[in-house]
Design a protein around this nucleic acid. Structure first.
Length: 487
RNA sequence: GGGUCGGUAGCUCAAUCGGUAGAGCAGUGGCCUUUUAAGCCAUUGGUUCCGGGUUCGAGUCCCGGCCGGCCUACCA
């Protein structure tokens, strides 16, 4: 070990590496096999009742996140999966040589501490160390302890550091896991079968989005990553699995934004002998259940200061009524394209003169209505051009039997009475293929020709659900490793 | 893709009109046996994102580039 005082102590890696080498020279293993953790921080703290002064012996383990050395005694805090617990290490309790080595520990090191629980002068439950074990030396410094990590890029690229120092972020990802777990529980209880369908597809359908393209060497052909789950799950309905769902990643080769990540997590659920009205009940019950069980409340405060009230029944509004209200024009749907464009301009919507009639109307919806729908709202009776996969409304053939659920000013979940007439379906596809650059999924149509029971289908953007349930500012804060330009 | 704001020590941030690049935390050495952002003394640490230019002198001004945030565009 070098005792040189001319060493550059600003190279934090070198300083820690020197400490590590010194331990090895003394015959110690800085990555010891184990330390026999007996309790997590929370479990250990539960073992010392209010009235007791001293508790049982425990062994806690975790990363050192604070280290207050006061001569011959030290307070430190360990971070484990449940939170933090303090340990109190005295020289005369662990021995002089041990304490000399202990003082060389760094913030970030993983150690195990064995000892009895007690309460400090200020009342904090603490482990009085009788022994400690270094189980992993950390060679890199942790981010600064007051401010944590604030650089967004580093938060995303080195998420592990964000998780070590930002409790809010830890809690959000725990909540995300709890939300997905609760979604599964809910659907299992309703006798839905969870299935997995291909991510690699030769034709990506079920949505109008540009796919990511890739190449499969063995078959020497091109594949796309899926953009939706829909068409394969409906094949399950044809096959007789009449309640199915899948939670999985879909990929859309489109821009990044506060609400868009190119890979994101979708839930899609299909229930035979139901329809979009049935999916309304399902979706509302699902979100209410998830909010209650995973978040603990039906009232979600927003950073904007208001609250989202998820309890009770939710508002239903017809697409046309919302458009008429927003434009102030009773005759909106009878206006020619030119007049609609003119009105759009007056509403300060950027207009593209090449848009189809229904696209102009949808711009009005997306640009001036959607963000106002903060309270849960089922938007129904949507123009048929917008959804080629749904059934046409009996008493209004210009609309289809769907809803688009908006919460927090965002589309969260669409649901359809699924189209099961193979002739109408083919026609709708062909119309769409004409407009968009999308191939026709002949195999799906073949499946439909074998007969698909009437069904309700629903898709839920898990990331967007997590955004508002965990008060995240950004979709990237809800995804552990959001898509970034390669470093 | 467009607009806009930013990039200074390991981390969080200062630096006045263009005039010797600083602080806190972390690190290093010392004191300290119930601390809570522990405290006290001393101290190390800089390609100011990169490349040009203007100037006696550039972190600061100008041009170009790279990277990022936000807004926007694309988006069943």
């Amino acid at each position: 070990m070098s005792e040189s005082t001319t060493e550059d102590t600003s190279d934090l890696f070198a300083v820690r590496k020197t400490k590590l080498d010194a331990l090895r020279e003394q015959g110690q293993n800085p990555f010891a096999d184990n330390c026999d953790q007996s309790h997590t921080s929370v479990q250990a703290k539960a073992l010392l009742p209010e009235e007791e002064e001293e508790g049982p012996e425990v062994c806690v383990a975790g990363r050192i996140v604070t280290f207050r050395l006061m001569g011959k005694a030290t307070f430190l805090k360990l971070l484990d999966r449940d939170g933090q617990i303090q340990a109190y290490v005295r020289r005369d309790a662990i021995g002089e040589d041990e304490y000399a080595a202990f003082k060389k520990l760094d913030l970030g090191d993983f150690i195990g501490v064995r000892g009895k629980l007690f309460r400090t002068r200020t009342g904090e439950i603490t482990v009085r160390a009788e022994e400690y074990t270094l189980v992993s030396k950390s060679l890199r410094p942790l981010p600064e302890k007051w401010h944590g990590l604030t650089d967004n890029e580093q938060i995303y690229r080195q998420r592990y550091l964000d998780l070590v120092v930002n409790e809010e972020s830890r809690d959000r990802f725990k909540a995300r896991s709890a939300i997905i777990r609760e979604i599964r529980e809910f659907l299992w209880e309703r006798e839905f079968l969870e299935v997995e369908t291909p991510m690699l597809q030769s034709v990506s359908g079920g949505a109008a989005a540009r796919p990511f393209e890739t190449h499969f060497n063995a078959l020497s052909c091109d594949f796309n990553l899926r953009i939706a789950l829909e068409l394969h799950l409906k094949r399950m309905l044809v096959g007789g699995f009449d309640r199915v769902f899948e939670i999985g990643r879909v990929f859309r080769n489109e821009g990044l934004s506060r609400r868009h990540n190119p890979e994101f997590t979708m839930l899609e659920a299909y229930q035979a002998y139901s329809d979009y009205r049935g999916m309304m009940e399902l979706t509302r019950s699902l979100i209410q259940r998830v909010a209650e069980k995973a978040i603990g409340t039906l009232t979600i405060e927003r950073p904007e200061g208001d609250v989202i009230e998820l309890g009770g029944d939710w508002r239903e509004a017809k697409y046309k009524d919302l458009i008429v209200e927003a434009t102030g024009r009773d005759d909106w749907f009878d206006l020619p394209v030119a007049a609609k464009l003119e009105c759009s301009k007056e509403l300060k919507i950027e207009v593209d003169p090449d848009l189809e009639d229904y696209e102009i109307t949808n711009d009005v919806f997306e640009k001036i209505i959607e963000h106002t729908l903060v309270q849960p709202t089922f938007v129904t009776h949507i123009p048929r051009e917008l959804c080629p996969l749904a059934k046409i409304t009996q008493d209004d053939p210009t609309t289809i039997d769907v809803f688009e659920l908006c919460i927090n000013g965002q589309e969260i979940a669409p649901a359809y009475s699924e189209q099961n007439d193979p002739f109408i379906q083919r026609e709708a596809f062909e119309r769409q293929v004409g407009e968009e650059t999308q191939a026709l999924d002949e195999d799906f149509l073949l499946a439909l020709e074998h007969g698909m029971p009437p069904a309700g289908g629903m898709g839920l953007g898990i990331d967007r659900l997590v955004i508002f349930l965990t008060k995240a500012a950004n979709i990237r804060d809800t995804i552990l490793f959001p898509t970034l330009r390669p470093a």
